[in-house]
Design a protein around this nucleic acid. Structure first.
Lengths: 166, 166
DNA sequence: TTAAACTTTCAATAATTTTTGAAAATATAA
DNA sequence: TTATATTTTCAAAAATTATTGAAAGTTTAA
């Protein structure tokens, strides 16, 4: 397969995957482009490679910087901003997981806690209270498992693997 | 807080959470309604409670059955379909995780494998190959951890907890 | 069979999300 | 300063996704 073709297909594929996470399609495509690029790219590079407008490129690059997936570099003797992707895929996975947890689960848990104050003793209310506390338990334990997972990956597995490679 | 108010807020909250997973907003609201309902509901119940059309209610109920989150019951002497939610939240979490893995990661991994056949030895191609194999490693290991997690939860933790409860 | 009860489909419409591109804002060099 | 380069904003347009509701399809009882 030719590089150009492989590159286009990768950008497509990554875009589809990203769309299924909170990251929108174009943002994920910009990310893909930066991931496989050996050097930092400018806004104009991104516009040209993906055929998108300046506003769009700008918004999505900024979004990626907010997610912590892309860094903004300066280059001496040049006014342009250069963008460079975080290349350690474990860092990428962790950042996405953290950001999603923050945006989704944390707020939902807060809201559920308030709902526990519902009054009454009908069958409906009893069922309601049971479901709410079940959800609370599951999200609580899931979050524990998740943080254990990232901690373990960080401190043990990954460092060992990186050592072996280098 | 009154039950009616708590119920509406729960349906809203669950809808928002669901929208951030692959499940769309209305589907998650239908799921929420069924989750807190002590008995099975008909399509008409769902239409009335959520104020949605018959077609919409039908599609989303069917979707939930496909996801394995809702069961279709019959009731003797009645032609209507009755719908009942899976109430074990650990089963719900597992079903969602499995379905998303199937829909997202599995197809992406297949596609990435093909992309490894790219030819050439420029800097771009070397970087490309490196990123692809990194992604392959991360998804591979993440999937292992995930399946270990669900297996562990299934076989040990959850059964123990359930025993303690009953 | 036929009629009634119920479910499913799908083209049209509505709602939401994304993208554009030109104008405004900001930063740098001369 | 002023001119130039670059980034950011945002209202309008385009694209995408969800919803409606009536018609077609299916199942069951008599």
């Amino acid at each position: 397969m030719e590089y150009q073709q492989a590159k286009e297909r990768f950008i497509q594929t990554w875009g589809t995957l990203g769309a299924q996470w909170g990251i929108n399609r174009t943002m994920a495509q910009v990310h893909a482009l930066l991931l496989i690029s050996p050097r930092s790219l400018t806004t104009d590079d991104v516009m040209e490679e993906l055929g998108i407008s300046r506003g769009n490129a700008n918004m999505n690059l900024r979004g990626l910087v907010d997610w912590g997936l892309v860094y903004r570099d300066m280059q001496k003797g040049d006014r342009k901003d250069y963008f460079r992707a975080e290349k350690d895929l474990w860092v990428v996975a962790k950042r996405i997981a953290e950001e999603r947890k923050r945006r989704e689960l944390d707020t939902v848990k807060d809201q559920l806690i308030q709902l526990k104050n519902v009054v009454g003793d009908s069958e409906e209310v009893r069922e309601f209270k049971k479901v709410i506390s079940d959800i609370d338990n599951v999200t609580g334990q899931a979050l524990q498992v998740l943080s254990m997972m990232t901690a373990a990956a960080d401190n043990f597995l990954m460092k060992t693997i990186r050592k072996l490679k280098s």
